[in-house]
């Protein structure tokens, strides 16, 4: 009798995780689109003569429209992340589902390629979280630099603050693409499908 081929278990995500994940993606894209609209009013790089993002990348139509979207979706974006944070804390998910010292060990000295890829993937998607928190903190500092002066002072001056807030866009996009790539590498389309379907 032939031994049956071992089939890896089908990855499964909880509905609430799919929801958090989906809301992060949608609200992040809306925040980026409206943020680039606001950027165009005075480019961070080059001021009034600076290069502007083309219309198809911006959301809002003009500065006031961009601000309408940005300061509406900010609630969805940050509260989704906050509730997610509370959830992973209460369920102790942060201990099991995010990068741990064993992953760093695997990356540094591990010989198993699969284990290494898995560790890299965990490192990358864990790394997105502090970037999103930085985006919110720097955004709040710019939104209310006087009433939240303590937050503003953490970022130095206005120009530095604008650069930091803007840089969270390319950095989070790079991490997102790496996360997608590594997700496929680690778990294939089945892992992908498990997070969206």
């Amino acid at each position: 009798m032939a031994t049956p081929k071992k089939i890896p278990p089908i990855p499964h995500q909880k509905i609430i995780i799919k929801l958090f994940h989906g809301i992060i993606i949608i609200s992040l894209f809306l925040m980026i689109g409206s943020g680039l609209q606001i950027y165009n009013a005075t480019p961070v790089f080059g001021d009034k003569e600076g290069w502007q993002f083309p219309d198809f990348m911006t959301l809002g139509g003009w500065l006031a429209g961009g601000r309408d979207w940005h300061f509406a979706i900010m609630w969805v974006f940050s509260f989704n992340l906050l509730i997610y944070g509370i959830y992973i804390f209460l369920t102790k998910r942060w201990q099991r589902r995010f990068v741990a010292s064993s992953d760093l060990q695997a990356i540094k000295v591990g010989q198993n390629h699969k284990r290494k890829a898995y560790a890299w993937h965990r490192l990358i998607y864990t790394g997105i979280i502090p970037i999103l928190i930085l985006a919110i903190a720097s955004g709040l500092a710019m939104y209310k630099p006087v009433q939240l002066a303590w937050l503003m002072s953490l970022f130095g001056n206005w120009k530095t603050l604008r650069i930091i807030h803007f840089m969270t866009v390319p950095i989070s996009l790079v991490f997102t693409v790496l996360h997608m790539f590594m997700g496929l590498k680690v778990g294939g389309l089945r892992l992908w499908r498990s997070m969206f379907v």
């Binding site: 894209f29 689109g33 409206s34 198809f56 139509g61 429209g65 601000r67 309408d68 300061f71």
Partner: peptide
Amino acid sequence: DSCGLNEYSTAVG
């Protein structure tokens, strides 16, 4: 973002 969402800016605001 640019496909039709801009006209909702004022309503969202």
